Simulated assay, not measured.
Amino acid sequence: MNRSHRWSIPALAATALLGSLALTGPANAAATDISTATAAPGITRHEEIERAKTWLTADQGKPVPYNQDHNWNDGYRQDCSGYASMMLKLPKPGPNTVALKDDGWTTPITMSALNEGDLIIKANSDSPKFRHVVVFDHWADAGHTKYWAYEQAGGVGTQYATHDYGLIKGDGYHAAHPRNLTD
């Protein structure tokens, strides 16, 4: 028996809408987050900071030099996001600053929620020269006006220094928690 189905215009529109939501909606985004999070092994905050310290003296007792176009001996890029990726054991050569923020490697947190190993990221710039990421270590003062952080910076290479990025209104820096931290 040959049956033909007649669909009403509202039924067709609803079906099309549900289909497009299934393809582009939150379920698809969640799959990206899960695959990204499982692409990196878990790491403790202590392990992350110990890895950070290795680049302070890895170049024959000197800091690893900064270079966006080269990878260090361990396979990670010698820039800020490559350094953060190395500390977190992310896939080599490491996601760039924008990917660290937007591709499921981190979740946004408030600056007041920062703990050792969390990231402070400036990714919303048209130029890579104005993007940056540092790894939070601890607050430098009781008023939380500065903090100690690990970073890979142009002109100096790897360093451990105090910063106020993210604490100045409108500077474009935001706090983020790496998804693969296990504690």
Rank of each mutant, 00 (worst) to 15 (best):
L17W: 02
A22F: 11
T107L: 09
D164M: 01
E47G: 08
K129S: 14
A52H: 11
L18P: 09
A29Y: 08
Y160R: 14
S81E: 10
P26G: 11
K169S: 13
S112A: 13
W55Q: 08
G170E: 12
V156I: 11
I121D: 12
A175S: 08
A175I: 01
T15Y: 04
A14E: 05
H46L: 03
A29W: 10
S4E: 12
H163C: 02
P91V: 00
A176R: 10
I49V: 13
Q159D: 12
A99V: 00
A142W: 03
K92N: 06
L88P: 09
F136A: 06
P178T: 01
D126R: 13
D102F: 01
K89T: 05
L90W: 09
Y173D: 05
H144V: 00
P10E: 08
A113K: 11
A22Q: 06
V98T: 11
I109V: 14
A29Q: 15
R3E: 12
N115D: 07
T44M: 10
S85E: 10
T44K: 13
A58V: 02
L23P: 05
A11G: 12
A142D: 13
A37F: 05
D118I: 00
A123N: 12
P108V: 01
G82P: 02
A58M: 06
I109S: 15
L181S: 09
Q68D: 14
E151L: 01
T44Q: 13
L181N: 07
D118M: 07
I168N: 15
G104D: 11
K92W: 03
W72G: 06
D74I: 00
G104R: 11
G143F: 02
L100R: 13
M86R: 15
H144Q: 15
I43P: 10
A14D: 04
P128R: 08
K92H: 05
I9V: 12
D137V: 01
P10Q: 12
T182F: 09
A149W: 10
A149V: 09
Y173I: 00
D183T: 00
V133L: 12
A39K: 09
G19H: 02
S4A: 07
K129N: 11
A175P: 13
A31M: 10
S112C: 02
P65E: 10
A52S: 13
G154F: 03
L167A: 07
